[in-house]
């Protein structure tokens, strides 16, 4: 265990003893010597090594204990992301608020006033703002993590730390941004309640909120690390991601409710989008109005698990040698 900071006297004497009592055993070792493979038999001493560097890692070489050891680094990366972004700006973190407000106003004009899309009985401002809040969280997580390898090659090439720390830190720093935007959303809800008497639906559906946010984080992380792993050698996919994410928003009920869709085929298409049920679920958790089924929640959960699984496998494969091809 190379994570152990100081070997205690007891532990080191124990390891010495282990070292003295080496177990010798016969092991077949394949040594590649060009041009063909020769099999030789060598005596290999079994010892207690703290770290073994080998060509291939297991399928799931995600070492959670190691990430835990680097938790301080994780926190520092989060801090760096949050503080560095708005250094030398006057408004500072206010920009986290200004961006969703302007987007909401735009949506209000384009989709509500011009296109005349109804909003499921939810106050339009809240409808758009809630959609934008959760969608922003997804895009931020996704674009941030999908750039993990290529964007941080400079650091990765010089020093080792668990690579997953960076995408995880992106998740957390964006969680803080989500917190700010969510607070804004709550503030607007209260304001409208006080001024217009718009009802605030309080109920058990609020308990769904953390689940929905975790689902969104998981989807962003999973898809992000998949893209990141696939783009180290061939960057094509990275180009697609840039505008793909904008297009994806139109296939997700961010600017319109699912109930607005009349065409069967389009409804089916949007329903298959695993993000749809998360966005709808977010609105259900907040307003409790539209129908939300356990099936669509289950669908999202399954999707997140699958994406995280594939992402973890790809990520742990790529992280070992990506420096050679990036």
């Amino acid at each position: 265990m190379q994570l152990k900071e100081k070997i205690s006297p007891a532990a080191s004497s124990k390891s010495c003893r282990n070292y003295e009592n080496n177990i010798k055993r016969e092991v077949n070792v394949e040594i590649l010597s060009e041009p063909k493979l020769i099999k030789t038999t060598a005596t290999v001493e079994k010892e207690d090594w703290d770290l073994v560097i080998e060509p291939k890692a297991g399928l799931f070489a995600i070492k959670l204990r190691e990430i835990w050891h680097y938790r301080d680094l994780l926190i520092l990366f989060v801090k760096r992301d949050l503080t560095a972004q708005y250094k030398q700006t006057i408004l500072g973190p206010l920009w986290h608020v200004i961006q969703p407000v302007l987007t909401t106003l735009t949506f209000l004009v384009v989709f509500h006033k011009i296109a005349g899309i109804r909003t499921d009985g939810i106050e339009p401002v809240l409808f758009y703002m809630s959609g934008i809040t959760i969608w922003n969280y997804f895009t931020a997580c996704f674009t941030h993590t999908s750039n993990t390898f290529v964007g941080n090659a400079g650091i990765f090439g010089k020093v080792y730390f668990p690579r997953l720390v960076l995408p995880l830190s992106a998740l957390l720093s964006n969680m803080v941004r989500l917190g700010i935007q969510f607070s804004l959303l709550l503030a607007v809800m209260f304001y409208l309640h006080l001024v217009n008497g718009t009802p605030i639906a309080i109920g058990f559906h609020w308990l769904l909120l953390p689940v929905i946010i975790l689902l969104m984080a998981g989807t962003g992380l999973g898809l992000g690390i998949i893209i990141s792993s696939l783009t180290t050698k061939y960057r094509d996919l990275g180009v697609l991601v840039g505008f793909g994410i904008q297009l994806l928003m139109y296939a997700t009920p961010v600017a319109y409710p699912l109930s607005f869709l009349k065409s069967k085929s389009i409804l089916a298409l949007v329903s298959w989008n695993p993000l749809s049920s998360v966005v709808e679920g977010f609105r259900y958790a907040l307003f409790g109005t539209n129908s939300y089924s356990i099936t669509s929640l289950g669908y999202s959960v399954m999707f997140v698990l699958l994406v995280l699984l594939v992402g973890a496998v790809l990520f742990s494969r790529v992280e070992r040698t990506f420096m050679d091809t990036v």
């Binding site: 190379q2 390891s15 590649l32 010892e47 207690d48 090594w49 703290d50 770290l51 073994v52 560097i53 080998e54 060509p55 291939k56 890692a57 990765f156 090439g157 010089k158 020093v159 080792y160 070992r320 040698t321 420096m323 050679d324």
Partner: peptide, 12 residues
């Protein structure tokens, strides 16, 4: 920062 193609390194 990168993995070997063959062989191993063991560290204590």
């Amino acid at each position: 920062t990168t993995a070997p193609t063959h062989g191993s390194v063991k560290i204590k």
